[in-house]
């Protein structure tokens, strides 16, 4: 079985960024579960529409940890709108590729973040936007199956 993580992925797995929790988060979400073998918890701190802090906890494999780490690193400082556009393919690119059977980790991390953003928006009572985000999530889900084959980033190193 090929399971060659890139140097970048291993770096983020071994020294993950933004681990921990935020005590009074503006947005929080949990995605996945122990039974499936991967779970992520995201915590957001938002100020004037900008993500000023983001942290995560993980029960998951090396790529689960690495994808959450790089994702949080990237979206920290982004506006909510920018962060919502951050796609799982970008996570994969930023890591220099992921083994094929691990692509779902990047999808889950992105979904988790979006869920945390939805939670934030709900708390702000911007309800119409919540629905939109949900739709987007579904769209991303559909995209996965199509784009999997076009992703040839599972390079050996």
């Amino acid at each position: 079985m090929s399971l060659n993580y890139t140097k970048k992925t291993l770096e983020h797995f071994l020294r993950p960024k933004n681990i921990g929790k935020i005590v009074h988060p503006d947005g929080y979400a949990q995605i996945g579960n122990m039974v499936c073998g991967d779970q992520l918890d995201f915590f957001l701190k938002v100020k004037e529409g900008k993500i000023i802090d983001v942290k995560f906890l993980s029960f998951g494999c090396a790529s689960n940890i690495a994808t959450a780490s790089i994702l949080t690193e990237k979206v920290k400082g982004m506006t909510i709108e920018q962060a919502k556009k951050y796609a799982w393919q970008e996570v994969v690119d930023d890591l220099g590729g992921l083994p094929k059977q691990k692509l779902h980790c990047s999808v889950m991390a992105v979904q988790g973040l979006k869920k945390a953003i939805s939670d934030y928006e709900e708390k702000q009572q911007v309800l119409p936007k919540v629905k939109k985000t949900k739709k987007k999530e579904e769209k991303t889900k559909k995209k996965i199956s199509v784009k999997k084959s076009s992703l040839k980033k599972t390079k050996k190193k």
Partner: peptide
């Protein structure tokens, strides 16, 4: 904690083990 993560961390330290976790 999850088995594949333990395995990968040990692997970086030169130790080879195995896991029956779903992720692996």
């Amino acid at each position: 904690i999850e088995g594949e993560a333990i395995l990968m961390d040990l692997s970086q330290k030169g130790i080879c083990v195995s896991t029956g976790s779903a992720c692996s």
